[in-house]
């Protein structure tokens, strides 16, 4: 979008704020609407804007598809890992009460970590989806 100079400038200016907003939604999900899933999508839209404005190749120089795949898998593993940890510490699968001495603290830790896992998987997968679709659209 070289000929859309204004769009590029404004877009580039907005990207960090969009991502910051994503982080806000991620960590504010306990108190208001939002949470890992929404945050992941918003964080991914930062990459979406970048891809749209500067092209797929530029985005690929920032994050490679292989890296995104690792992140995507690790989100699932983090989530399931919390479950395994709670099993190892004597509770049922995903029983966060046992994660800390105090059940409430355990719930806080559990919810925080799994939301983080959700956010990682969603953000990376959404970016990955867009990149794969865009890749097919490029003239080979």
């Amino acid at each position: 979008m070289n000929d859309h100079l204004i769009l590029r400038v404004v877009g580039k200016f907005l990207i960090p704020y969009v991502m910051l907003f994503g982080l806000y939604v991620q960590f504010h999900g306990d108190f208001g609407p939002g949470g890992g899933f929404q945050a992941g999508v918003i964080f991914a839209s930062g990459f979406v804007i970048y891809t749209l404005l500067f092209g797929l190749r530029s985005t690929q120089q920032i994050v490679s598809e292989g890296f995104l795949r690792v992140i995507s898998a690790s989100g699932v593993l983090i989530y399931a890992g919390v479950g395994v940890a709670s099993m190892l510490m004597g509770g049922e699968f995903l029983n966060y009460n046992v994660l800390a001495a105090n059940p409430i603290a355990g719930q806080h830790i559990g919810i925080m970590v799994i939301e983080f896992g959700v956010g990682l998987t969603v953000a990376s997968t959404m970016t990955l989806l867009l990149m794969m679709f865009a890749e097919r659209g490029l003239p080979s």
Binding site: D3, H4, I6, L7, V10, G11, F13, L14, Y17
Partner: peptide, 20 residues
Amino acid sequence: LFMLFTCPTSSHALAKAARH
């Protein structure tokens, strides 16, 4: 503020695209 930046930008881009 967000809309202050984005609305005119997209209008501008749209007009330009239409002209092109």
